[in-house]
Write a protein that binds this DNA or RNA. Sequence first.
DNA 1: CCCCAGGGCCATA
DNA 2: TATGGCCATGGG
Length: 298
Amino acid sequence: MEPEIIKIPLPSLFSFDECIWFLDRNLDDCMHVVAGNRVRKLLYEQEPLLLEISADDTYLKIEILSGKCSDPGFVTRHIEEWFDLNRNIAPFYKLLKKDKALTPLCARYKGFRIVGIPDLFEALCWCIMGQQINLDFAYRIKRRFVERYGTSITYEGKSYYLFPRPETIEVLTVEELRLLQLTTRKAEYITGIAREFSSGRLSREALTALPTEPDMLEQLLSIRGIGEWTANYTLMKSLRAMNCIPYGDVGVNNALFQIKGIHQKNNRLLVDEVFNNFEGWKTYLVFYLWRSLRNKEE
DNA sequence: CCCCAGGGCCATA
DNA sequence: TATGGCCATGGG
């Protein structure tokens, strides 16, 4: 008899409320549904599994609402990966506390961890979709894309989606994708990336086999449509590279201006001056800076 | 009407 | 290597 509920003990310095905050943010993300302090997400194992995730003081609780789970370990590993549970972030807090201006982030966002995008293809497509447009619009395009080309199940009258597979996307024409209000360029980028996957030239395995983060960055940058921002963002969210800085990012620049008074745009030296003290945790600093931008809403 | 938004490509010098 | 035009749409 397969267990219907999986429990994962919570690590210290982990806040499920921060996960929920991140997943909910008033943005219409089609890849999960948040209701109160629970989140539902469709995961593909041997068949689509609808998960409902909640937490108490000691455990993360994963309930399988729909689908037959043949390997609970697969689900556990996926959730650990999604919420970055297998990481001791205490050293990061130690570094934050060495910087007076950044110290308040420790208490303000205690236990905030980077919610990942384990699917590499999804991460890359999402970056392309979001390039240079406002987030609301980007999420609208993603929803159209996923609802049109992704597999879904219905549970209690509501639909839940898996992100489309490269094999589905590579055969699409630019005109079809233009209907979703992707630009011609972005449509080309996305089908091109889909072809990289289905041809086997690009995969999570191939990328993680490379020895260093700069090697992975270089590999991604060689693909049309993937620039510095997209490559770094993807390495952070999907492969959990720990020393990425998406130079030129508007949010990072704004946060560094608010917190440290750095106002020069595209000034790598001043940005590096802050980040050089965060060796091994640069990626986390980026997400804490982004997190700080949303403070006004609360 | 203008500027910007979680960019990137391409041409030009 | 640096800079500017371009893409396309929505919101302030």
